[in-house]
Amino acid sequence: MSQVLSQAGKRSLRLRHPVAGTLAVAGYVVMIVPILFVVATSFTAGSTLRFPPDGFSLRWFAEAAAYTPFVEALVSSLQLAVLATGLALLLGVPVTLAIHRGRIPGKELLEGLFLSPLVVPELVVGLALYQQLMIGLGLNNFSTLLLGHTALLLPYAVRVTGASLALADPALEEAARGLGASPLRAFVTVTLPMLRPGLISAGLLGFVTSFNNVPLSLLLQTRDFRTLPVTMLDYVQQSYDPMVAAASTIVLAATVVVAVVAERTVGFAKIFGGINR
């Protein structure tokens, strides 16, 4: 890695400095190496979570795939992530349109309001929904989770699709309307195609955020409907076997697939890093 980094720095003027290089290598080690240990231990034939693994086998993958709580939680998490993402886009895109195309006062305030779920700590939001909606109003935990996740994803839906819309020329929509298209037709045939990259980005970002969420979902778990990350977290507290490493490796593999899909559609760094390279 250090060779790669120093090669990468060769044509840059400023960071061939040994201190900077060392710091950079240390940073990558901290970010990546723990993940590699999880993968390595998941292939063990032994029954403890340790490195180096005792032999090689796929037994813990078989056990994880057959462990009902994990499988049920995976299905629940996928359902929740898909529904919350869809709902956030359905609610968020009209808001984006109103903010960017409408003639209303206080647009900045309005946008700030829709970004506010990002500012309050998620654990605090989770506590509020648990106490007020689940206990107070007797709402079931799936509805509460869906409400919470959708509120959490709304900022992404509004801001990311807004970035796409800001690049689109309103004159095009006006031209369509002038040529006799109804507002709905102008939206579907002109605005929606321009929003496509924003919709894909917000969709992927929302799905990943909802699927991985712990702090907001933590207090909103019941036996009937549990999410995967929280189920895995609880499992580690009870037993220290490699099954959870196997489950982690499966999640890692699925995440790589999501990253590849993101790269092929809009560009990985653009969606998840907000970087226009």
Binding site: V4, A8, S12, L36, V38, V208, V214, V256
Partner: peptide
């Protein structure tokens, strides 16, 4: 950097953002 490795390393730095915090933290137990 102008190097083609820069893109790979940037992707490697962004990828963990997509990965579950639970999965990322388990490694430290090992």
């Amino acid at each position: 950097s102008q190097s083609r490795w820069a893109g790979v390393l940037l992707a490697l730095a962004i990828f963990p953002l997509l990965l579950s915090n639970v999965v990322r933290t388990f490694g430290w137990l090992v």
